[in-house]
Amino acid sequence: MSEPVSALNHAGFDGLAKVTECGLHGMITLRGDLAARAVKAAATGASGVKMPGPNEVQSKGDNALCWMSPDELLVICDYKDVRQVLDKMHKSLGAAHALAVDMSDARTMFCVTGSSARDVMAKLTPADLSPATFGPGQIRRSRLAQIPAAFWLEDDQSFRIICFRSVAQYAFDLLCTAAGAGSDVGYFSAAPIRPT
């Protein structure tokens, strides 16, 4: 069996922020009534992570549960564990009306880290990235320039971004351009205001 390869195979860039394609992750889309016991049990049981509230991410180690919509969660786990996790979820769901499907290969994950990470991201998304509105533990689905993306903060300087695999190169090029030399905005990173 061949080794699975992520879209950009861990490409990286060092600029105002560090941009990395962070390889393959197990990602399972779970659609269902998030208030239903079976659905909650399937999500938390398979991942070992607490149920996230609206627009939240809960994580534990490499596993995470991302709230994607009122009836959708994204279950993140190790890539090689996906089938196992999915089986467990299916058992746990039983006859409940829900859809759990492997989307690990459909997506690409990026990390953008550094003190300018918010500034870099704010060049591309109309989402409000003010620390008061968007902090670690929250997830936002929005767009990066012309593509849909979801992102959350692992800590105050580290974004995780997921987008569709087919546009991985576009997303990477966007992020690298936004993190390009000489383009620091200093809006969020509180760099000294440019002398007047």
Partner: peptide, 12 residues
């Protein structure tokens, strides 16, 4: 009304 996000028109 579903996720509570104040969405920009370009997200809609």
């Amino acid at each position: 009304p579903y996720c509570g996000i104040e969405a920009d028109e370009t997200e809609l």
